[in-house]
Design a protein around this nucleic acid. Sequence first.
RNA 1: AGGGCUGUAGCUCAGUUGGUUAGAGCGCUACACUGAUAAUGUAGAGGUCACCAGUUCAACUCUGGUCAGCCCUACCA
Length: 1340
Amino acid sequence: MYREFKHLNLPAIDAEILQFWQDEKIFEKSVEQRPKENSFVFYEGPPSANGKPGIHHVMGRTVKDLFCRYNTLKGFRVARKGGWDTHGLPIELAVEKELGITKEDIGVKVSVEEYNATCRSTVMRYKDLWEEKTRLMGFWADLDNPYITFENSYIETVWYILQRLYKKQTADGQSFLYKGFTIQPFSPAAGTGLSSHELNLPGTYKEVTDISAVAMFRVIRNAVSESLFDSDNEDVRILAWTTTPWTLPSNVALTVGPKIEYVKVKTLSPYTGAPVSVLLAKSRLAGYFNTEDENQSFETFKVGEKKLPYQLVKEGIKGSKLVGIRYEQLMPTPAASTPELEEKAFRVISGDWVTTEDGTGVVHTAPYFGADDFRASKAAGIPFIGLPNEKNQDLPFPLVDRQGKFVDEVPEFGGRYVKTEYYPVEIQKDKEFKPTDLLIALRLKEDNKAFKIEKYKHTYPHCWRTDKPVLYYPLDSWFVRASAARERLSELNKTINWHPESTGTGRFGQWLDNLQDWNLSRSRYWGIPLPIWRTEDGEEEICIGSVMELSEEVEKAVKAGLMGKNPFNPTPNPSPAGEGDTHSNIAGEGVNQGNEDRVEEGFRGDWFKTTSPERWKILKEFARGMRKSQTVGEAAMWEMLRDKQLDGVKFRRQHAIEEFIADFVSLEHKLVVEVDGTIHDFQIEQDQMRTELLNAVGFEIVRFKNEDILGHKYKVIDELRAILKKRKEELAKIPNPNPQGSTDTKENDWIKSPSPAGEGLGVGFDLHRPFIDDIVLVSPSGRPMRRELDLIDVWFDSGSMPYAQWGLDYEKLKNGDDKPFKSPFEVSYPATFIAEGVDQTRGWFYTLHAIAGMVYDSVAFKNVVSNGLVLDKNGEKMSKSKGNVVDPFETLATFGADATRWYMVSNANPWDNLKFDTGGIIETRNKLFGTLYNTYNFFALYANLDGFKHDEFNVMPYEKRTELDRWIISKLYSLVADYRAAMDDYDVTKASRAIEDFVDEHLSNWYVRLSRRRFWKGELNEDKSAAYQTLYECLMVTTQLMASVAPFFSDWLYRNLTAPIKEIAKAKKTPLRHDSIHLSDLTPLQPFMVDKALEKRMDYAQRICSLALSIRKKEGLRVRLPLQKILLPVLDKAFITEVDGVKDLILSEINVKQLEYVTDASGLLKKGAKANFKTLGAKLGKDMKEVAAMIANFSNEDITALEASGEFKVSVMGKTYAITPEDLIITTEDLPGWKVASDGDLTVALDIHMSDELLAEGMARDLVSIIQKMRKDKDFNVTDRIAVRMERHPLIVTAVEQFGTYIKDEVLANSLVLVPQDEITGEIVELNDEVMLTMDVTVD
RNA sequence: AGGGCUGUAGCUCAGUUGGUUAGAGCGCUACACUGAUAAUGUAGAGGUCACCAGUUCAACUCUGGUCAGCCCUACCA
């Protein structure tokens, strides 16, 4: 039996199928049953579980899931390893908000350890919700073994990638990973760079009034500039405007817009009256000159007057013509002068970004203090101005230091702050005080270098913390030299199949073409540390590529005495020199046996115990609270001790030891430093006891009072130094008190943070800060190297995912494998397909591409679908503040996953923004799922009645089936072809719409409607069996095609359809043996099943029926009333054969007795002709219109003549054209005397004359209809036989007499009796609006 | 500011290499059908294809510009 259902309940289906998938491990099977070597590689872009999943994630993941499922059906093995993105600013910000701290407080109020531990616990906060959503929406991914970006194995693989970049060199020997600088927002007041996020905080941009200056740069006369000079002694200057006069000493270039038109104006210097010729953009003239003053006398001008006479002497100078002109440096700093600068700088260069909205159309360019300036100068090969830098000849120190002061070498202004706000308030208020910008402006005036000095109001960014202006300033960063790979990346991109294409060529392609170096550095805490260790002077450095390598380097450092112990024990790869082993294997062994001076750092071994883990936890909580309420003295002390400031000794703050919390403690020196606030005066006894107990476990205690610290800082430090030295010596003498203990280092060792389970090296050691910062390596020359404190951009994390998701394989690494990643990397690279939001274009898409391109000269993905945003139904972005966010759980629970998924991909292309409207889901549910469900139920109902069971071994050959059957089969396989083509092209919208169309238009509304009779009429004969088989096949194939987008419903339907034959199918291993549709093989293309001619025929039938029905409608002739004849004008010979094939269908559908064709010969047709513009256009050109009008006026005879002769000549304006039948579209306009309707080239005419017989038959049908209705109202079973008695009404007598048998047959009546009116009881029914009659229907 | 996407019926969307009646579904109005019935059919109303200019015999379609919405990037002398 096939299962039958009362109502469609998609959420219930979801639940049933989810359970089934879980019980039977369908996902796992669907992957594993496919051969490994036939892999379709998918990469999951890792989401962050830090935020709750939204409805847009359902969108993104639907796209991902459906192509994976589709390719699974196609026979590919599609592994989908899940992943989690765990680093990054959003997480840090969330943690900071939670802890109530700012970035500045990290390491002060909260230790880096704690901070990172909180990050670690926060990132997975909503993991459960994510997993639940993933499950409920039917996104198949392996979430049991996800890659997690904070795990050591992930981190070390990223290191490996970084190391490859570090080792890779450009043609001219530059490393792909280098330290450089960029111009970044910088707050001298806070002494820190600001992230763009910080710059976007509200209130950052403030309106301020600055001194602006238009400076005059004197042009040097030479071959390039010659054309600008009119006379020998002419003083030609270029005008450039700035709102930051303090950057003028750093000017190295003037930037002009290449397309902007410039003019030369003869005038006088407003402040000195000296004659001068100035260059500026033509459109900016009005900003500096008044037309009234044009050509006024120069003689009468006096300095200080407003009316400045001028003369326009040269126009039409394109900016590009000015490029290369040299000028005199405006404000030289002799100490900064170099031959290179003199040779290459102080030139006019070109920049597209120059505008003429403000200023003079010439931009003063000081590369150290503006990002655009920096780029433009670099591109033009202009050196930067500044003081000599021994370490890097190419990059001198800027003329402004990090405090925001001019360096001393700057004449006249050295030592001055560049912005007024940086001065203490008292100084700013001083009457004599003048802003530096003003002083500079005055100097320019005096030197005849200023054209206009004025106050200027504009918005300027301010540091949100100090409220003081921000400077753009060069800051150190590590970069990936992506610009060196620009062309190659661009080339590789052209091989990628983008959806939509425009993203690949447009947004992404253009971005690649203008690729800048990738700034990797982030001065943060929670992220992957940069694996570069450097000596203090930066001369020696090492880039680490694995934990194994790090371990080896640590071994060297241990031997050199820079590290106490290697935390990466056991070393799988012992250092070649055997002696290293003695003090690296077993904890505690040998470390402190002599050799006292080498111990400077952490990892002194495990011989000290602090307190029990349980107790420690409680104390830690307590200590955290204490940190927040520290005393002034404690704060001051911490300022001195933190970050190993005191001789590199690591101090911990508020650390728990045994039962106590020590204010400060150096564990390696076993020294506790207590700072006594006022409360200690009242608890002398407790303090005493505490001291004794701590002494007992080997700690020494020093106490300071608040006032000691506040008053005599340096004395305190000196004292501490002395004590530390003493402690060191003492400790060296004490043998290890607990050599056997602490083997259980995982539990006890505070060094180790809760590191996730991993494998291999360094388990238990967290590669994050601060722990990694404790590792000191030794340089080849024997000097200590410390880690560069930067973290890397989290985008690098996710871009490394193709490699890091598997981790490093040390065997391969040792063998020098080029791609030393664990299996199954070799069959998992590059990705065949990825999908992500379009906002990832410059995010994940880029980082994947860039890393793969630079590291392996390969693409990382071959096909990519970028999906758009999910907006609310009004097209507005969803946001919590607007309250228009859609809860994905609610949506899934209400409508089910399938309808939601289907709606999302079919309503609009995934890459277009989706206006999410639940109304659309309802529509999808009703139209597609409802229809299909009805169709299935219809099938199940009758199949069960007839005892039909699909038999794979006894299928009727297609050629034996009816026209209608063969038609729907043809349509079905046309759909298969269209669907596969669209899906192979990653166009799921097209594919899903094709299915909708098939199900609704063809299967339900045509095939099932016309076949209904076959299912419920008569015994299970051949024809009926064919109908079942055909419908079964349609349902089966359709549901499989739907399986990718609607995995639940399709599996449910598949299981219902196959349940009755599952046993046999399994036994005989037929295609239907699979338990789940997701394990089946996609229906192959069946070109032989597709019969386009048949489809065309049926299309005729559908259109003819539609036209005939519309005539009936117009004439008020109900369909039950049979008509005698339909006439079809014949336009070409094939038409007759084509329509003949579907003649019976048409006749029964529109209830007409016969069909006749009318040809020209009949003389009945009235034809019309229209120009076929497509063919005529080329022929006629301009005469098109006239000829078209002529053709429209063709008479019947003209057309007939043309058709007969095959040619017709028309002449227009003296030209003669030959028109062939192909140039005309001939239609039948009318059949005089008939009721006619037409659609395009198709016309039908109906004979609407009635006869008694037709009327009787119509009446019989009306009776059938009314009896059927009564059967239904009375809830009879479909198979019940009945007895019918009805009133002998005069209008029905003929019908009953002539068509009695027919009626009985139709309504399954054993008897049909006409009874006089007064003898009948029963219901009074209304027959076709005319007749009221009494009727009695009972089960017989 | 730069780059990208989108703009077609009240709503959601199709619209092939330019070709003369610009389509579908929903919604609305009217009617019909009824052994799929919380379905279905037919008909109707509803469009300056965002706007302007150009190319062309012919533009929703191609080109340029404008406007609006959104996304990404950048923040300016």
